[in-house]
């Protein structure tokens, strides 16, 4: 079921187009990663979805919902809290402002704070919180009113490796119960938790699809052969009559239309007397795909 559909969303500031006619839709209970380099328009897109910014043109539609703000939970990249409120007071206030009834607001706040691991800091003032705790509180306040769509802006970018792991695990748990759209420029995170990828570059949506779809489109599978010396590598490359790239002792053989197959290559190598240390098929990871997606539009 489609939860939200965005069509031709555009935002211009003066004569600068920050988000340029992007269209996508998000299915219920999936997670979508918005990927792009800094300045690609990720935060602006999220701001329009939250209603903080109004779009220049285009539409954001959610079936049967009038005021989208009541069904959205938002975590900004650097969430700022009122330093003089405790975690519980803050979350409770957030719930009430989103229309949760007073008694229920307190119950839900306690529950969600326990859930994100702030059970022991309920009554601590938010000014004493570390970066990781603030991020947890940010997630708690975004979830406390049980939103249909959770929007997260760079949820783990500002955290150290331990904090990042903890928050990623938490998000993976949440993923089972709600719909998530999050932006990131850290591709390992996206690889770990995503049903749909949206690549933004210069405000344009340059690529979208599931991880496997995108991978299939951009993957250039290669066979990596490591020889014992550079001479042998060069010698192989000159004889092979294949698309080869030599890097030191290693030769990358490009596979074009499934040719050559691993079997063919092995047969050839078996009949010659090269001394080979290793041979393997390599596929592109998300980072290489990212560089390709971003790079392939560089000239535009």
């Amino acid at each position: 079921m489609t939860l939200i559909s965005v069509s031709d969303l555009t935002k211009t500031f003066g004569n600068q187009t920050v988000v340029d006619h992007i269209s996508f839709s998000i299915e219920s209970n999936t997670s979508t990663a918005l990927i792009g380099p800094n300045g690609a328009g990720k935060t602006t897109t999220l701001s329009m979805l939250t209603g903080l910014l109004s779009q220049t043109s285009g539409s954001i539609k959610m079936d049967g919902v009038k005021d989208m703000r009541s069904v959205i939970g938002f975590l900004p990249q650097y969430p700022k809290f009122f330093s003089w409120l405790s975690a519980l007071e803050y979350t409770e206030m957030a719930a009430k402002l989103s229309g949760v009834e007073a008694k229920q607001a307190r119950l839900q706040s306690q529950k969600i704070l326990e859930y994100v691991g702030l059970g022991s800091a309920l009554h601590k003032k938010t000014e004493t919180f570390s970066g990781g705790m603030k991020q947890r509180l940010g997630i708690a306040q975004a979830l406390v009113h049980k939103p249909k769509l959770l929007l997260l802006d760079e949820p783990v970018s500002a955290l150290d490796p331990v904090g990042r792991r903890e928050i990623m695990n938490l998000l993976k748990e949440i993923q089972n119960e709600t719909t998530i759209l999050y932006s990131t420029h850290i591709l390992n995170d996206a690889e770990e938790m995503t049903d749909q990828l949206l690549f933004l570059r210069g405000g344009k949506l340059v690529e979208k699809g599931s991880l496997n779809e995108v991978r299939a489109r951009f993957e250039e599978p290669r066979i990596k052969i490591k020889f014992s010396s550079q001479e042998q590598a060069l010698q192989f490359a000159s004889q092979a009559e294949l698309h080869c790239n030599v890097e030191g002792e290693t030769v990358f053989v490009e596979i074009d239309h499934d040719q050559p197959t691993m079997q063919q290559l092995l047969n050839r190598l078996a009949n010659s007397n090269f001394s080979i240390e290793s041979i393997e098929k390599v596929t592109a990871n998300l980072e290489e795909i990212f560089m390709k997606v971003v790079g392939s539009h560089e000239s535009v």
Partner: peptide, 13 residues
Amino acid sequence: QNGTATLLYVRPI
């Protein structure tokens, strides 16, 4: 200016 308003303004206030 310090961003504390953001989390209020995204709610239906």
